[in-house]
Amino acid sequence: MHHSVTTNLSNGSAAFTVDPSLYPLDALYGAAYVFIDRCFVFLEKNAQGHVVVSLAPKKGPADQPTLEKWAGEFSNELLSCAWRHQIAANNKQALEQVTSLALAGAMGPPSLDDLSNFDFSSQPLEDPLGIAMSWEEKYKKKPKP
């Protein structure tokens, strides 16, 4: 994860590097997002192509133990996000099925009002097999040329 945490007490920030070959960018974003309500988070790349994560407190100065605690927590969150990213890919189908079941179950069947209020105009209705056409329309005699 990070080789070391550099703390700068004068501007109250902690910085550490993350090797992007170990952690997908989405995991890094996921961890960063969890922290942006309590810290200022800044990402940049160093000469080795590693991502340097800087964390600074939003309220008042932070002491060294606090900064190091944040860096540690960020590392844990990063690992958690990276693993979740992998699991979500592996179990995508099962997760989607259960989520659909739960949400559709909670919503219940569509009511007549739902159907009458449904906006079909925004979605072009493709009908390559002519299912929506009336029988007469579909099989009517073609005008002779």
Partner: peptide, 25 residues
């Protein structure tokens, strides 16, 4: 339907599925 289909509810359904949680999986 707006309540139970709210994006927060959807997020919670996904997030509390143990088949998507590190360790729990």
């Amino acid at each position: 339907k707006e309540l139970v289909g709210h994006p927060t509810v959807r997020s919670e359904v996904l997030a509390s599925n143990l088949d998507g949680q590190p360790d729990c999986v």
